[in-house]
Design a protein around this nucleic acid. Structure first.
Length: 421
RNA sequence: GGAGAGAUGGCUGAGUGGUCUAAAGCGUCCGCCUCGAAAGCGGAUGUGCCCUUUCGGGCACCGCAGGUUCGAAUCCUGCUCUCUCCGCCA
C-alpha cells in the first residue's frame, strides 16, 4: 500500500506497474475523490481554526468573570458545521483507503516485463535431469501402493485435496519439518510457532485482503482466517512496532500447516499432491533495512536452495516476470524441483522482497539511535513447501523394485531407515 | 466465564473540563568549555496530513472507536490489550 500523497504524485508510475502486473484498478474514481477530499479538508481546517480562536476568547472571558454568552451561539453554529463536514470527509477518506488498498506494489526495475509464466527467466539450475532405465510411477501411484499416501481417506474425513499421510509417509512429513527447521535455525533464523488462525488486520497487513479474501478459509463467527502461509502470522509478529535499528536484520523461520480454498483452480494439476487445500510448509521471513533488502533476498533464496541441495533434488531458480508476480511483491524468485513421475517442474518455494509495501500496511518500522523511524523492508520465502518436495522424493528416489530410498540427510530423523518398501 | 486495577512522547512520569501550544527527569543531537574526553553550562529534539516557489503557516493525534459540551488527555458508553485474584480446562 502506498501513502495517499505518493499515489497522487506518482499516478502514472502506479498505472504502468498495475498494467505490467495484469491488475486492473479504477483510477478515475481516485482522482475525483481525492480532489474533493482536499477541497473539503482545506475549508474544514479553516473553520476549525476560527472555532478554536473563539473558544480561547471564551475561556479567557469566563476566567476574568466577564460575560461570554454572546459568543456561544456563534461557536455552537460553527461546531455543528464542523461536525457535518467531518462526516463528509470521513466518508471520502474511507473510499480512498479502500482504493489505495487495491493498488499493487511496483515491480523492481530488474524484473522482466511479461504477461505470464512464459516470460519468466531461468537464472540458474542445480543437478541434472536423470533418465531412469525403468518407468517411474507418479507419486500418487507408488504412494498408494506403499500405503504411505491415502488420498481417499482424506476425502472421506474432510474432502478431496485433504491428503492423509500414513505410517512411514507420516514419518517422512515429520522428518522433513524437523530437518528444515534444524537447518534454518543453525543458519541464524529464529524459530517461531505461530497461531494458524489470524484476524482480519493481519491478513490486510500482508496484502491477502482485500483482493484474495475469497481464496481463504474464514470462521464467520469470529471473523478469523486460516492462514494460507506462515508469512501472515510471522510478518504480523512485528505489526505496529518500531524495531531498534541494531536488531536488523531479523530472520525467522516457522513451520505451519497452510490452508487454501484454491477456488476456481480445479481441473488444473488436480491429481495427487500437486495442489491441496491443506499442506505443510516451513517459511522464512526477514525484516531488513531498506538498503540491504535485495542482498537479503539473495540470501533468502540461497537458504531455500540449501534444502533442495541437501536432499539431492534437481531444481532451477526462476525470476518471475511482472505479470506472474503477486500483488504485494517487488521482486520474486521461484524454486522449481524436477519430478520425473509427473514429468513437471514443481514450484516448491517462492522468495519475494516486498520492500515497504507490507510494512506500510502493517505499520512495521525501525528506529535509529537518534529516534528517527522509517518503514522496514519485509521478505519471505518458503523453505520449503512439503507436498511437492515429497512428490520429488517419491519420484526421484524411486527404485525399479517399487520402493523409495530415503535421502541420506533425512535418515537420522527417521530412525535410521534407508528405504520405504 | 467472574471481580478489580491500569494504558500519556524514544523511556520514566505529572496532569481529573478552558493559553495543555502536555510539566519534570532521563535519553538523543548541536554548541560552549577541553590537548581530547567526562562532568558542567546553553540550545534543540514526536508523527501524519493540508496550504506555500522559498521563508513559513495551519489542522489532527494522550490504547482504539463513538458520545456529552461552545470547549475533552480529563466526563460517559463500547472495544482491545496488560497486570492481580477467583472459576473452568488438555
Amino acid at each position: 500500500m502506498f501513502p495517499i500523497k505518493f499515489a497522487r504524485e506518482n499516478i502514472e508510475l502506479l498505472k504502468q506497474a498495475a498494467q505490467n502486473k495484469n491488475i486492473s484498478v479504477d483510477w478515475d474514481v481516485f482522482q475525483n475523490i481525492e480532489n474533493e477530499r482536499r477541497k473539503i479538508l482545506k475549508s474544514l481546517e479553516e473553520e476549525k481554526r476560527v472555532h478554536k480562536n473563539l473558544n480561547q476568547q471564551l475561556a479567557l472571558l469566563k476566567k476574568k468573570g466577564q460575560p461570554y454568552e454572546h459568543l456561544l451561539e456563534q461557536a455552537k453554529k460553527l461546531s455543528d458545521q464542523i461536525k457535518e463536514k467531518e462526516q463528509l470527509l470521513r466518508d471520502l477518506e474511507e473510499k480512498i483507503e479502500e482504493f489505495l488498498a487495491t493498488i499493487p506494489n511496483i515491480p523492481h526495475k530488474d524484473v522482466p516485463v511479461g504477461k505470464s509464466s512464459q516470460d519468466n527467466v531461468v537464472v540458474r539450475s542445480w543437478g541434472e535431469i536423470k533418465k531412469p532405465s525403468f518407468e517411474v510411477m507418479p507419486h500418487y501411484e507408488i504412494g498408494a501402493k506403499l500405503g504411505i499416501l491415502q488420498l481417499e481417506k482424506g476425502a472421506k474425513m474432510t474432502g478431496s485435496f485433504f491428503p492423509v499421510f500414513a505410517d512411514k509417509g507420516a514419518l517422512l512429513v515429520r522428518a522433513l519439518i524437523n530437518f528444515m527447521l534444524d537447518l534454518h535455525t543453525k543458519n541464524g533464523f529464529t524459530e517461531i510457532w505461530p497461531p494458524a488462525l489470524v484476524n482480519r488486520k493481519s491478513m490486510f497487513g500482508t496484502g491477502q485482503i482485500p483482493r484474495l479474501e475469497q481464496d481463504m478459509y474464514r470462521l464467520k463467527d469470529e471473523d478469523l482466517f486460516l492462514i494460507p502461509t506462515a508469512e501472515v502470522p510471522v510478518t504480523n509478529y512485528h505489526r505496529e512496532e518500531a524495531i531498534p535499528e541494531q536488531q536488523l536484520p531479523l530472520r525467522y523461520c516457522a513451520y505451519t500447516p497452510c490452508f487454501r480454498r484454491e477456488a476456481g483452480a480445479y481441473g488444473k494439476d488436480t491429481r495427487g499432491l500437486i495442489r491441496l487445500h491443506q499442506f505443510d510448509k516451513v517459511e522464512l521471513v526477514i525484516f531488513s533495512k531498506p538498503e540491504n533488502s535485495y542482498n537479503e533476498l539473495e540470501f533468502l533464496v540461497n537458504e531455500a536452495e540449501k534444502v533442495l541441495q541437501l536432499l539431492g533434488l534437481t531444481y532451477r531458480v526462476v525470476l518471475l516476470c511482472t505479470g506472474d508476480m503477486s500483488f504485494a511483491a517487488s521482486k520474486c524468485y521461484d524454486l522449481e524441483v524436477w519430478a520425473p513421475g509427473v514429468e513437471k517442474w514443481l514450484e516448491v518455494s517462492s522468495c519475494s522482497n516486498f520492500e515497504a509495501f507490507q510494512a506500510r500496511r502493517a505499520d512495521i518500522r525501525y528506529r535509529t539511535k537518534s529516534g528517527k523511524t522509517d518503514f522496514v523492508h519485509t521478505l519471505n520465502g518458503s523453505g520449503i513447501a512439503l507436498p511437492r518436495t515429497i512428490i520429488a522424493i517419491m519420484e526421484n528416489y524411486q527404485t525399479s523394485r517399487g520402493t523409495i530410498v530415503i535421502p541420506e540427510v533425512l535418515r537420522p530423523y527417521m530412525g535410521g531407515i534407508t528405504e520405504i518398501s
